[in-house]
């Protein structure tokens, strides 16, 4: 049957309902457990195999040797495409994708995050602050 205003009832029905729009900056939605956000590096776990550097499609990771079994990691967040392939490639779980996604930045220098080298034994809270 052909009739005009086929969606009219649906529209009227929604007048009493709350908007479907999410109130984003004020109400933040919980990210799913597999979300791929900002990367963090645990220097004490790194063995310097460079698998993350080899697999990164965007050349965003740089690992430099700072001493015996000590490696510094430099992540260019402006290059990162958040595929988290490095997290999968790492044999020692030295990289982790966090749920942090609000990474927009006016100062381009702040995109470069350096995780300083640490001794290879497991120590609590070794994650260094960005420079």
């Amino acid at each position: 049957m052909i009739k005009p205003g086929a969606m009219l009832r649906e529209v009227l029905r929604h007048m009493a309902k709350k908007p479907a729009t999410e109130q984003y900056p004020f109400v933040k939605k919980e990210k799913p457990p597999k979300f791929r956000g900002k990367l963090v590096f645990y220097a004490e776990k790194c063995i310097g195999c460079n698998m993350c550097v080899r697999d990164c499609p965007a050349n965003a990771i740089k690992i430099t040797k700072k001493g015996d079994k000590q490696f510094e990691c430099e992540i260019m967040m402006n290059r990162c495409i958040f595929c988290a392939q490095c997290v999968d490639s790492c044999p020692r779980k030295a990289l982790e994708a966090t749920k942090e996604f609000e990474l927009a930045q006016l100062d381009p220098k702040k995109f470069k995050v350096v995780y300083e080298a640490a001794a290879p034994k497991p120590v609590e809270n070794t994650e260094k602050k960005p420079e």
Binding site: P32, K34, F35, R36, I81, F82, C83, A84, Q85, D88
Partner: peptide
Amino acid sequence: LELVSGNRVNYGMNV
């Protein structure tokens, strides 16, 4: 899709 793959677009579900 976000629940299964982690992200809304560019799911990265293949290896």
